[in-house]
Deep mutational scan, measured.
Amino acid sequence: MTEYKLVVVGAGGVGKSALTIQLIQNHFVDEYDPTIEDSYRKQVVIDGETCLLDILDTAGQEEYSAMRDQYMRTGEGFLCVFAINNTKSFEDIHHYREQIKRVKDSEDVPMVLVGNKCDLPSRTVDTKQAQDLARSYGIPFIETSAKTRQGVDDAFYTLVREIRKHKEKMSKDGKKKKKKSKTKCVIM
Rank of each mutant, 00 (worst) to 15 (best):
P110H: 06
E98K: 06
M67E: 01
E91R: 09
M72F: 03
S65H: 08
Q99Y: 07
G75C: 10
T87W: 08
S89W: 08
D108C: 09
Q70S: 08
R123E: 15
V125Y: 13
E63L: 04
Q99G: 04
D108R: 07
S106F: 11
T124G: 12
D126C: 10
I84S: 15
Y64N: 02
V109S: 04
V103H: 06
P121M: 11
G115I: 10
R97Q: 12
T74W: 13
Q70E: 15
E107D: 12
E107M: 14
E63V: 04
I100Y: 01
D69G: 05
A83Q: 13
Y64V: 01
I100F: 06
D69T: 05
I93L: 11
R123S: 14
R102Q: 09
Y71E: 02
S106Y: 13
F78Y: 06
D69I: 01
L79H: 02
D108G: 09
H94A: 14
V112L: 08
E98Q: 07
N86V: 03
L120V: 13
V81M: 12
K88P: 12
P121S: 13
N116S: 14
S122V: 10
A83R: 06
I100H: 01
R68P: 03
P110I: 03
E63S: 06
F90I: 14
G115P: 06
K88R: 10
V112G: 00
A66V: 12
D119G: 07
Y64T: 00
E91G: 07
I100G: 01
K101D: 05
L113I: 13
G115D: 04
V103Q: 03
E76V: 14
Q70V: 03
K104G: 06
R68I: 01
T74H: 07
T74P: 04
L113A: 05
Q99A: 09
E76R: 05
H94L: 14
R97D: 04
S106L: 13
Y96E: 02
V114F: 04
Y71D: 02
R123I: 12
R68Y: 01
R73P: 06
V114H: 00
F78V: 02
T74A: 09
V109A: 06
C80G: 05
R73A: 11
Q99I: 05
E63C: 07
G115E: 06
E63K: 08
D126Q: 09
V112H: 01
T87C: 07
E91M: 07
R97M: 15
S122K: 09
R123M: 13
E63G: 05
A66R: 05
N116F: 01
H94W: 14
F90H: 07
P121H: 13
G75P: 03
L79Q: 00
T124F: 10
G75Y: 11
K117T: 13
L79V: 09
A83N: 15
S122N: 13
Q70A: 09
L79F: 05
E107T: 10
V109K: 02
N86Y: 04
G115N: 05
T74Q: 11
L120G: 14
I100V: 06
F78N: 02
V112Y: 03
Y71R: 00
F82Q: 04
V103M: 08
